[in-house]
Simulated scan of single mutants.
Amino acid sequence: MSSLNLINTYSSDSDEADENNKSLPLPDSILKWQGVVHHTTIIDDPSQHGGRIRTFKHERGNWATLIYTNFFWKISDVPSVFMQTWIETIGNQLSITGNTCFEQFHISFTRTLILKYHWIESFVDSLKKLCDKMSQFTLKILDFKLYCNEEKSRTFLGLECYNRDGILDQFVLALNNLLTEYNLPAFYEEASYHISLLWFLGDEKENLKRLIPPLTTKLNEFLTEYPEESYIHVDRIECKIGNKIYNFPLRSDHLK
Score class of each variant (00 low, 15 high):
G166C: 07
I237C: 00
T97F: 05
Q136Y: 10
Y226R: 01
N247Q: 11
K240I: 15
N207V: 06
D13V: 15
N8K: 10
K128E: 12
N70R: 15
T100D: 02
Q93K: 13
I67V: 15
F71N: 06
L139I: 08
R54A: 10
W63Q: 04
R52Q: 08
V172Q: 03
G35W: 08
C131R: 02
L159R: 03
E151C: 11
N220A: 08
K133P: 01
D44A: 09
L4I: 12
E16A: 12
I141D: 00
I232F: 12
Y193K: 04
L113N: 01
M1A: 02
Q170A: 11
R54V: 12
S76M: 13
K116A: 09
I195T: 11
N176T: 14
A191L: 07
F82P: 05
L223Y: 00
I241R: 01
W73M: 06
V36P: 01
D125V: 09
D169L: 14
N247L: 11
V234N: 02
L115G: 00
Q136V: 14
E19C: 11
L157P: 07
S47K: 14
N21P: 06
N5T: 15
L201P: 04
H106P: 01
P227H: 03
Y147T: 03
Q34N: 05
H254R: 12
W33R: 13
I167S: 14
S230Q: 04
V234S: 04
P214M: 03
D28C: 02
H49V: 14
T41F: 10
E151W: 08
P27G: 01
Q48S: 11
D28I: 06
R111C: 01
H233E: 13
I107D: 02
C239L: 10
D125M: 06
L115S: 01
N176W: 10
N247R: 11
G98I: 01
V81K: 13
Q136M: 13
Q48R: 14
T69C: 09
I107C: 09
L168A: 00
S153M: 08
I141K: 00
L4F: 09
L24V: 13
W199L: 02
L197N: 05
N62L: 13
K133H: 06
G91R: 12
L219Y: 00
E225Q: 14
E59P: 00
L201S: 10
T89W: 06
R236A: 12
S23A: 14
E150Q: 14
K152A: 14
P249K: 08
L31M: 08
N21Y: 12
S153Q: 13
Q48W: 05
Y10A: 14
D44K: 08
T180Q: 14
L250N: 02
T217S: 11
I75D: 12
R210M: 11
D235V: 12
K57P: 04
R111L: 06
K133F: 06
L173E: 09
D44L: 04
C161Q: 07
D45I: 15
I237N: 00
T112P: 00
I96R: 13
E204M: 15
M1E: 04
N177R: 13
Y117H: 07
V78I: 15
S153G: 06
Q170C: 09
I42R: 13
